[in-house]
């Protein structure tokens, strides 16, 4: 098992291999469908993004409300396939990597290889368990989207599996 911490660089992630388990510490940024739509609009209009794509991992996640006295609610990954339509432009703009659940389209696998990016998956349907690895949460943008807003999360030993590595190798069989 490998430990990894942010800020990440392409050198660091290019050493990882599909299937490997990784414990990640540092900053990640949540974004689901609606937030992606806005990020894409911002890129197209040349506006500044809420975070620097070049060293960022986007986490496909929309947490539940935060109960009193807690840092975050339940916060597991959502289906990555739905985001595939937005991903090419983000990768082109320099996005380093993504965290989600499930497969990606063939096009995205090719683009991950081309841009030397990375795609991780984490325990699906385990939002309560994953909340334990989140040490800090801050809303960065689009708060009107509620759970679909962009949150900056500080995580410690957040469990991940490398699903598609920079060589385009995949953890999934097909």
């Amino acid at each position: 098992m490998q430990r990894l911490s942010t800020p990440l660089t392409r050198d660091k992630i290019n050493k990882l291999k599909a299937g490997q388990k990784v414990l990640l510490s540092g900053k990640i940024y949540t974004a689901r469908d609606q937030a992606h739509k806005r990020l894409i609009e911002a890129i197209k209009q040349g506006r500044k993004l809420p975070f620097n794509l070049k060293e960022a991992l986007i986490y496909y996640c929309g947490p539940t409300q935060t109960p009193r006295g807690k840092i975050i609610g339940s916060c597991g990954p959502t289906t990555s396939l739905r985001i595939d339509g937005f991903t090419p432009l983000l990768l082109k703009a320099g996005l380093l990597g993504m965290i989600g659940k499930g497969r990606r389209s063939y096009e995205i696998v090719k683009l991950i290889k081309k841009h030397k990016a990375i795609y991780f998956v984490t325990y699906a349907g385990c939002g309560a368990l994953l909340s334990r690895y989140v040490k800090k949460k801050e809303c960065l943008a689009y708060s009107d989207l509620g759970p679909e807003a962009i949150f900056k999360l500080e995580v410690e030993d957040f469990p991940l599996f490398v699903a598609i590595d920079a060589e385009g190798r995949s953890i999934y069989k097909d």
């Binding site: 109960p67 807690k70 609610g73 339940s74 597991g76 939002g127 309560a128």
Partner: peptide, 25 residues
């Protein structure tokens, strides 16, 4: 086994911390 273990652990954490089992409620 690792994943099934995490899923079982998740149900224990949800109950103990009174959190939703999954963020997709």
């Amino acid at each position: 086994k690792d994943i099934l273990g995490a899923i079982i652990k998740n149900s224990e954490v949800a109950e103990k911390e009174r959190l939703a089992l999954c963020q997709d409620t």
